[in-house]
Design a protein around this nucleic acid. Structure first.
Length: 563
RNA sequence: UGGGGUGUGGCGAAGCGGUCUAACGCACCGGAUUCUGAUUCCGGCAUUUCCUAGGUUCGAAUCCUAGCACCCCAGCCA
């Protein structure tokens, strides 16, 4: 046992096939220093599936004293944009990780990649093909039948060189020619049937502008970029497993400075969630959600806006494991991580979402008082604050029932409950409007129960949150639910039809304890008995807006649902 | 008779031939405590069972053989 092991032994070791592999490569000297990379394509926003990859790549680098870089896989200017590059950098940082050095880009290596393409041609291992896309597909064969050689496969090195140079010089329109690696048209692995490695795209690139009109494909750029950067363990998802022979072929047949190895793990799937960039893009573009950072989106920016802390996402990912078996995780696990963290850290406040006015008849008119309230029972250091109490207050409509069953512990005619941090009150009368709607409650309070305890030792079953009418702040509160009603929305092409029409509920006229105005966007707080909330960026002092991050567990709701 | 993968409880996941009458977490179900029906706490939750069927072995979820199921691949996307 050496000293590094002694150090890592302090914390429980995470064991998965990738970490086992790294451990052994480090132990037998195959690897001197671990280098990984997180390689997003800037064609969309990062989502929670990427969070798994981010935590793996950056996590493993820090655990084994290695390096992790951020590298944009920007080989397709038709789809990529600067907006996405900026958002990705922000999201990775917010997740709590810092990459080694400046962000890298596959496009930083376009010159080198071009030279290597020429090298392949010179060695008779690549050729320019004049077949169009449909013809190439036809020549490729099928899953069960081998392909046929392109009629252009036998071109001379000189001709290939000339043609490739002219491709680069912009002499041909998009799609007129491609450069292909000359491997094996009869391979069982379709990726080895002379894959296209360069294509003509007359389109300005976010970084290289109009310098190029030919661009390398993913396969021709990824492994070589890894090699240039000295990446030792190139981690990607399962669908790239059958690209590995091509990855290795390129590394072996090119004079690259290193031999990175690719390892594949299962991507994250979540029930009730869609996690493919194509589908997320569709949701945004068709306006089914309000942008990439809509709090209902599984994007990192959406989760952030909803109020979910990065630490909860990291915790969630750490409980997932890293394997090669396809898996679909219940989002309840993320919920649990969020609640566990926020229960410990979020300060409590009172807010009434659906207000019902209560007049305390025996409380002196025109008077009020300040009462002590504990900010976080899980954390003494959070201290106390004062809340205003008076003759008129608001309680939650759900906390009153005119004909209450025995198991209902809240307010009902003749029943006594506690107002949190305040007094016991008893309901004496119910006021209704012309159509029979309850518009107000009349109650009496017991002055001896100030602070919330009865000196005579009598108990009440329920404790309600409330806000004094005197200084309540009006606010908008947005409640969120699953974006989809189908547990597996991604399985069907028409996933839009399974959108949950009740995924967003906007409440206005909510009554807030005024101290809530002191919180900043990004701060988490608990509205007592309701859930965790966060101030939305739309919020202004004049018109505050809060997002519900997560409900509290609600046993009462479950009892009601089961009866 | 294409290639590449994966199969352990509702979900995720340990397990690397004996200590497996199979960890742990989520979910779920009981019950206790509680000024949040929250939290916390206790208990239950795969008892010849680890995709199936054979085999090897004193002994298998772990090794072998044969099946079966599911996932990925026929973009000049990544």
């Amino acid at each position: 046992m050496n000293e590094t092991e002694t150090q890592t032994d302090a914390a429980p070791e995470t064991r998965d096939f990738i970490r086992e592999r790294i451990r052994s490569d480090l132990a037998d000297g195959t690897t001197d220093q671990l280098v990984t990379r997180f390689p997003p394509e800037p064609n969309g926003y990062l989502h929670i599936g990427h969070a798994k990859s981010i935590c793996l790549n950056f996590g493993v680098a820090s655990e084994f004293k290695g390096l992790c870089r951020l590298r944009f896989d920007d080989t397709n200017p038709a789809k990529e944009e600067q907006e996405f590059i900026d958002a990705i950098e922000e999201d990775v940082r917010w997740m709590g990780f810092e990459w080694d050095g400046a962000p890298r880009h596959a496009s930083d290596y376009f010159d080198q990649l071009y030279d290597w393409a020429v090298y392949l041609i010179e060695n008779g291992k690549a050729y320019v093909d004049d077949l169009n896309a449909e013809e190439i597909r036809a020549y490729r064969g099928t899953l069960t039948e081998p392909g046929k050689d392109s009629p252009y496969r036998g071109r001379s090195v000189e001709e290939n060189l000339d043609l490739f140079t002219r491709m680069k010089n912009g002499e041909f329109p998009d799609g007129a020619k491609v450069l292909r690696a000359k491997i094996d048209m009869s391979s069982g692995n379709i990726n080895m049937r002379d894959p296209v490695i360069y294509r003509i795209v007359h389109k300005s690139h976010p970084r290289t502008g109009d310098t190029w009109c030919i661009y390398p494909t993913y396969d021709f750029a990824h492994g070589q970029s890894d090699a240039i950067e000295g990446v030792t363990h190139s981690l990607c998802t399962l669908e790239f497993e059958d690209h590995r022979p091509l990855y290795d072929w390129l590394v072996e047949n090119l004079p690259v400075p290193a031999s990175p190895r690719q390892y594949e793990f299962a991507r994250l799937n979540l029930t009730y969630t869609v996690l493919s960039k194509r589908r997320l893009t569709q949701l945004v573009q068709e306006g089914h959600v309000n942008g990439w950072n809509d709090p209902r989106m599984p994007t990192i920016s959406g989760l952030r806006r909803r109020g979910i802390p990065a630490a909860a996402i990291r915790d969630f990912v750490s409980r997932l494991g890293v394997t090669k078996s396809d898996s679909t995780v219940d989002p309840a696990l993320l919920d649990h991580c969020v609640r566990e963290l926020l229960n410990k850290t979020a300060e409590r406040r009172m807010a009434v979402l659906r207000p019902l006015k209560v007049v305390i008849e025996n409380y002196p008119d025109g008077e009020g008082e300040n009462l002590d309230a504990v900010n976080n029972p899980e954390d003494d250091a959070a201290g106390k604050r004062q809340v205003r109490f008076g003759r008129e207050i608001y309680i939650e409509r759900d906390d009153f029932m005119e004909d209450a069953p025995k198991k209902f512990f809240r307010l009902a005619p003749g029943r006594e409950v506690r107002l949190r941090w305040a007094y016991f009150i008893t309901c004496t009368d119910v006021i209704k409007d012309d159509v029979g709607e309850i518009i107000e409650l009349r109650c009496t309070y017991d002055p001896a129960t100030k602070g919330g305890d009865a000196p005579d030792g009598r108990k009440v079953k329920g404790t309600l949150h409330w806000v004094a009418a005197e200084n309540a702040v009006d606010a908008e509160v947005r409640l969120y639910d699953h974006l989809f009603t189908d547990p597996a929305p991604g399985r069907q092409e028409d996933f839009v039809s399974t959108l949950n029409p009740e995924s967003l509920e906007v409440l206005t006229g909510c009554k807030l304890e005024p101290s809530l105005m002191d919180f900043e966007v990004g701060d988490a707080m608990q509205f007592e008995r309701l859930g965790y909330f966060a101030k939305d960026p739309d919020s202004t002092d004049a018109a505050p807006v809060f997002n519900r991050t997560m409900t509290l567990r609600d046993t009462w709701a479950k009892i009601q649902a089961n009866s």
